[in-house]
Design a protein around this nucleic acid. Structure first.
Lengths: 112, 112
DNA sequence: GTAAGTACGCACTTTTTTGTGCGTACTTGC
DNA sequence: GCAAGTACGCACAAAAAAGTGCGTACTTAC
């Protein structure tokens, strides 16, 4: 979407992940579909502007589904698509690697 | 190193990956240990400043090993550490996911 | 009637990241 | 003697990303 053509699959994957908060958003949506306001509370520290922005990008990339209910006050629900779920799964090993690294860092921190 | 504390393992992993060229560097080093100049040629488009910078960060994070030979002209060789190799492996599923996405995009491009 | 919540949009600033162009001290090849 | 290669360092510029503050049109709660 932003930097095509990609040189490899990893490149293509990292492009949709790119953004300070995207993995947190994906992670939150993997647990539950939710509304804009809920999501903002689930991702503490994010600004509304950036949340909208990153949701739009994730939607354009087919990771997130946006459902609008024509009611007042407005209601919109976000959820992961199938592709989004697969992405989340593909991130698993990376998360496990990072967890081991965190443990190592913590050990080093205790002795340093 | 840069944004600790991490909220989860994925956060910790993405932090060491963070940088426009880091995965390309890791990928190149996974195939062969190489010198600075070689690496620059293997990663076309990167500036020398940024290559040095990202190598230093990867070294500080324990992903890359830097070996200096005290000869003239200077010779330095970069290679992946064990941790770096594991990281590369952990990136596998993500790369596979991205590859599928690329195929889908290409299909869509042909019809759009 | 006033504040708060709904899901954003828009203009602007700040921060972060990346790129550009130059210099080093030395050797080899022409 | 002059260019090119070695592996960088440094000052600065450009670009990209994120954050800030304010406004919308409407409703419910107090």
């Amino acid at each position: 979407m932003r930097k095509r053509p990609y040189v490899c699959g990893l490149d293509a994957a990292l492009d949709v992940i790119d953004g300070k908060w995207k993995v947190l958003i994906i992670w939150a949506l993997n647990h539950q579909r939710c509304r804009f306001g809920e999501l903002r509370r689930l991702v503490p520290g994010i600004s509304e502007k950036v949340l909208v922005q990153q949701l739009r990008e994730l939607e354009a990339d087919g990771i997130v589904h946006r459902e609008i209910y024509d009611v007042v006050p407005p209601k919109v629900e976000y959820s992961l698509t199938g592709l989004g779920g697969e992405l989340n799964t593909a991130l698993g090993p990376l998360g496990a690697w990072g967890k081991r690294r965190m443990a190592v860092l913590e050990e080093a921190g205790r002795h340093g």
